[in-house]
Structures are given as C-alpha cells and as structure tokens.
C-alpha cells in the first residue's frame, strides 16, 4: 500500500470521490430505509420505536387501489412505448448509417427540452376547447368536444410522450448489433419470416426490451407532474403519493416505504435484464 505522503494527488481524489458518494448517496439511502421502519413524528419527522406500520399501511384498501392504478397506467405506458418503439427501432436500424445518426439526433432533441413544457404542450392539444377538439369539430366529425384532459388516457399519453426515447434507444442498440448472418442462416435453414422473428429476432432483442421496460416502467410510476397537469385528482401515480406524504402530510415512514417498493421493483427488473443478457451470451458462445 503506497503511503499518503508519496501520492497526495491520488489520496485527495479518492477522499473527495468517496466522501461525496458516501455522504450524498449511501447515507441518504440508508436514511430512507431507516425512516420506513420508524414512527411518524410531527416534530422531528421520525422517531422510535421501530415498526412495520408504514408497510402495513401500503396495503390499506385506499392506497392499494392507488398503487394498483398507478401500476396499471405505468404498465400501459410501457406497453404502448414497446409497441411503438419496437418497429421504430427495427426500421431505424435498416437505414444508412448517416441517416440513422441524424434521426437519433432528432429523437433526442425533444428529450433535451424541458419536460414540464412538453407536458404543457400536450395539455394545449387535449383540452376540451383545445386544438384536437376544435379541429375535429371544424371538420364536422364530432358535434361535441371529447373529454380527453383529466382522464387516465391523458396521463398515459403524457407518460408515453415523455418516455418513448428511453424505450427506443436500448432497442435501437440491440437491433444495431443484430447480425444479418443469423437472419440469413435462419432463412437458409428453412424458417419463414414469422419463425425467424419468434425464434431468432425476439430472443436476441430481449435484453433491449427489458432495458427499455426498466427505463420506462419506473419513471412512469414516479413522474408526479404528469398527472398533476393532465390527469386530475383521480389518476395518481406512486410518485404523487410519495410527494404528498413527504411534502404535505409529513408522513415520512409511509413515503419512505412507498419509495422502497419502487426501488425493489427496480432491483427485480435489473436482475431480469442481467439474466437475459447472460443467457444470450452463453448461447452466442456455444
């Protein structure tokens, strides 16, 4: 082990980096875990004794319903993103390299634009007297405006709009790596288009699908400003519950427990992603 005096630069760098991560990543996360098993306290936020009340509260009929509804909206968002993104990434990977890069650039541009502003732009389109309704009425296709804003559908549209690039980018990367020889081999061995799709393309792009699901499903449960702007009070996300518990109700144990449920979901998805990648690695090598 080199002594401190001989490598002051190395020591300084390591102390700074470790210090930052221990204080601002490890400590806060441990705090949340701790808070979730403590008791709510109006003065100091949390206090002893330790208990699992917060986790029990998650299964109250009222909150369970909010959670399931949030999970449903997040799942629908992920499904829609996958259905749009999968053929999109496939089509994109078939274009010339130069054009691919340009199109990727234009996919990222909206993603670099303030997400609140983009959600607001959707509100302009979906409102009762908004552009979609007034155009449809102008064309004479409908007589009365359709209620689109403040519905479950509006929240899902908003989430899809914000999260679609996160589904497309990992999918594009697996399609880009997909070797044409494998498809030709499958064809030569007598497989039709459908059989090739099911037995070759789907398994090989599975890691991309899982990465995309991971990157969409979790934010889709946390982006509380989308229901705030588009969804009204009945279409809440887990993120809204966590935010209300921490900022308004001041019930830290409950908010912390809800956030741990999110983290555990993330861990499970990451594990699935890893396993699917390993499987492909083995098959590719063997």
């Amino acid at each position: 082990m080199p002594s401190i005096t001989r490598q002051p630069f190395r020591t300084a760098v390591l102390v700074l980096v470790w210090g930052w991560l221990l204080f601002l990543v490890l400590a806060p996360n441990l705090l949340v875990v701790g808070a979730s098993v403590m008791t709510r306290d109006p003065g100091t936020f949390i206090s002893l004794p330790l208990n699992l009340d917060a986790y029990r509260q998650l299964f109250d009929a009222l909150y369970l319903e909010v959670f399931l509804h949030s999970l449903y909206m997040a799942a629908m968002t992920t499904l829609v993103c996958l259905l749009i993104g999968y053929p999109f990434a496939w089509a994109l990977s078939k274009l010339g390299k130069q054009r691919q890069l340009l199109l990727i650039f234009f996919l990222i541009v909206p993603f670099w634009t303030n997400s609140l502003v983009r959600t607001y732009a959707l509100k302009m389109l979906l409102a009762t007297n908004g552009l979609i309704n007034s155009s449809l009425m102008g064309l004479g296709w409908i007589d009365e405006p359709i209620q689109m804003l403040y519905t479950e559908g509006a929240v899902i549209i908003g989430l899809v709009y914000l999260l679609l690039p996160f589904m497309i980018l990992p999918l594009y990367s697996v399609f880009d790596d997909l070797r044409q020889e494998l498809l030709l081999a499958s064809h030569d061995l007598g497989a039709g288009r459908f059989a090739t799709f099911i037995h070759v393309i789907v398994p090989l792009t599975l890691p991309g699908v899982l990465a995309g699901v991971m990157l969409v499903l979790l934010p889709a449960m946390g982006l509380f400003f989308v229901p705030d702007i588009l969804g009204g009070s009945r279409n809440l996300l887990v993120g809204n519950v966590i935010k209300n518990q921490f900022l308004d109700a001041r019930n830290w144990p409950f908010g912390a427990a809800a956030s741990i449920v999110l983290t555990v979901t993330m861990a499970i998805l990451m594990l699935a992603h890893r396993l699917s990648k390993q499987r492909i690695g083995e098959e590719g090598a063997g």
Partner: peptide
C-alpha cells in the same frame, strides 16, 4: 427513479 433520489 428520480423521486427516490429526491426524498433521500
């Protein structure tokens, strides 16, 4: 998720 980082 950002919200987890935020509350921590």
């Amino acid at each position: 998720p950002e919200i987890v980082l935020a509350i921590s």
